[in-house]
Structure formats: structure tokens, C-alpha cells
Design a protein around this nucleic acid. Sequence first.
DNA 1: CACTATCGTAAGTCATGACTTACGGTAAGT
DNA 2: ACTTACCGTAAGTCATGACTTACGATAGTG
Lengths: 109, 109
Amino acid sequence: MTYDSALAALADPTRRRVFEQLRTGPKSVGGIARDMPVSRPAVSQHLRVLKEAGLVRDEQDGARRVYSIDPRGLGPLRRWLDQFWDQALDAFKAEVERPTPSPRRRRRS
Amino acid sequence: MTYDSALAALADPTRRRVFEQLRTGPKSVGGIARDMPVSRPAVSQHLRVLKEAGLVRDEQDGARRVYSIDPRGLGPLRRWLDQFWDQALDAFKAEVERPTPSPRRRRRS
DNA sequence: CACTATCGTAAGTCATGACTTACGGTAAGT
DNA sequence: ACTTACCGTAAGTCATGACTTACGATAGTG
């Protein structure tokens, strides 16, 4: 739900690959696992983490279960990153534009 | 350097807290560790990971070592997130607005 | 020089989590 | 009803990594 669970979920490379497979559209569990080097239960577990992080949604379709990206899931992470980016840029700018080299003592040539 | 190392680096809560402490400006290792529940060597190790991910820079200042955020470090992650955001939204939109199975959709926003 | 402050690294411990196989449960086809 | 396809969960294994303490190296101070 928050940006930290999204970060934790997207940190693992395998899980991120699962997530990226949904970028083109909804997909079933078996369809995802077919293009991956891990077992199907592993994919299920990754999807569980992604779902708990609010990044994907699931929908029953007969015997299959179709997963798709929940676009709102990336919102918090995006906002956190943006805010962070702005503040970091400001601090960096202030650091660069500083006229006098340093208020530190000791500088006797 | 790339978005995956940035994701891995920012996934850990403690390391993210170290990173967030630099948001207000440069800080020394001891200064960071003073506001954290872990030891100073732990902070050093976290800073090492952050540095290898290109998220922070370090500068020697006497006996101290001052760390600051490298604004360019968040670039790849931001770009990846944006691209992902757009594509996911398009796929989601096409999925919702589907009166008939539409073939493809190009970017719009 | 002796002493202190600041920091990085090495080594070892320990919990977390990413896999596997095995199993049970539901839906569709014959 | 039987068989097949699809999927989630449980349990167990094993590597990764986040800590700790101990130590050494360097810079400033008296």
C-alpha cells in the first residue's frame, strides 16, 4: 500500500520480471511461469507479494487466475521519488551555488 | 548505476533511512549514525551500498568523510518508473474501455 | 610524540526470504 | 464420474545480507 512495500516488492529481480510481464496486459499464472526460469509455485508466491504491495490485482477466469497491474500501486512510490528528487536537487543546487568555498575553519594556505 | 541497483539499495528500511538523512544536505558518517538505532560500522556499510548504486557521493573533509546525495543516481529509477507508469496506464485504459477486443494502443499522455 | 576523533574493513552470527517438491482444491472436458 | 488443467499453500532447504565486535589506518590536537 505504501511506497516501502512497493520498494521491497520490486527489489527482487525475479519478482520484478514477473511484474514486468504484466506491462503488456493481463496474464495467467501459468502464462507468466512459462517464460521464467523458476517454478510455478515460485511465481505464485511472487504474485502474492506483489498483490499485498498493491501493485497487482487478480481476477478469477474459470480455472485460471488472471493477474494485471494495478496502476494506483505505483502512485505512492512515484510521489515519494518525486518529492525526494526535488529536495535533493534543491540541496544540490544550494551546495553548488555557494559563493564562499566553505564555512569550515582551518584554511591557512 | 542502473535502476535495479537503486531499487535493491533503497529496499532496506535502515538503508533508506540513511539515504533520507542526506535529503537536507551533506552529513558525516558519525552524524548519521548518531540519529540511528544501529552501530556506526553498519551505517558505513549502508553508505557503501548506496555509493555503489550511484545514489550518494563521498568527500573527504579532514578526518571526517562527508556523504551527500548524487541527484543523478535517481535518474534511471525515475525513468524506469515513468515508462512503466505510462505503459501500465495505457494497458489498463485499453482493458477498461474495451468494447471489442482492441488490437493495440499507442501512447497518448 | 602521545592522545583523541573519525572512519573503513574483517570476521562471525543470525534472521530473512527465495526457491524447491508435495499436496489439496476447484473448474472444464470427455 | 473420471481425468486433465490450473492454481494456492505447506514444509523444508539454502543462500543472501543485515547486524555485531574487534582491529587498523589516517587526521587533527596538546
